[in-house]
């Protein structure tokens, strides 16, 4: 009896560890997005300060390509939109995962209790 529970417990612990891994992965991805968001916001601020007398270039590989100011602005705006969407997506994902981990933790705790009980019984019989 105790061995069966122990095996199950082990499997569940492994599952839990995998979940924690996913959570930290998602967390670091979100952090990266946050950095990109800040950087793009700074670029947007700068572009908003410009007028038609300024020429904008985009670095593509090693070459600078002339680009329309409005085009650059809309690119950055689109990028910001995308990044914000991604952050939101990660946020809900994280919340979901956290809820699942919480449930899993409870499951683990009850399994552990069961295991201890079963072990106690086994010892008592012996």
């Amino acid at each position: 009896m105790a061995e069966v529970i122990q095996k199950k417990l082990q499997a569940e612990v492994e599952k839990y560890a995998q979940m924690q891994k996913d959570v930290s992965k998602s967390l670091s991805a979100r952090q990266k997005l946050e950095t990109q968001l800040t950087e793009n916001n700074i670029v947007k601020e700068e572009l908003d300060l410009l007028d038609s007398t300024n020429t904008v270039y985009k670095l593509i590989g090693p070459v600078l390509v002339k680009q329309d100011l409005d085009e650059a602005k809309s690119t950055v705006a689109k990028r910001l939109e995308y990044i914000n969407g991604e952050i939101q997506r990660h946020e809900t994902l994280l919340k979901d995962m956290e809820k699942k981990s919480e449930q899993h933790r409870e499951l683990l705790a009850s399994l552990q209790q069961e295991f201890q009980k079963a072990q106690g019984l086994a010892v008592g019989k012996a």
Binding site: E39, V43, L47, Y57
Partner: peptide, 21 residues
């Protein structure tokens, strides 16, 4: 001068504007 404003964008500015930047 050409100023790097981030994420691969470079802007041609005059000296005064660049100093302000």
């Amino acid at each position: 001068v050409l100023v790097d404003v981030g994420t691969g964008y470079y802007v041609e500015k005059n000296v005064e504007d660049s100093k302000a930047f």
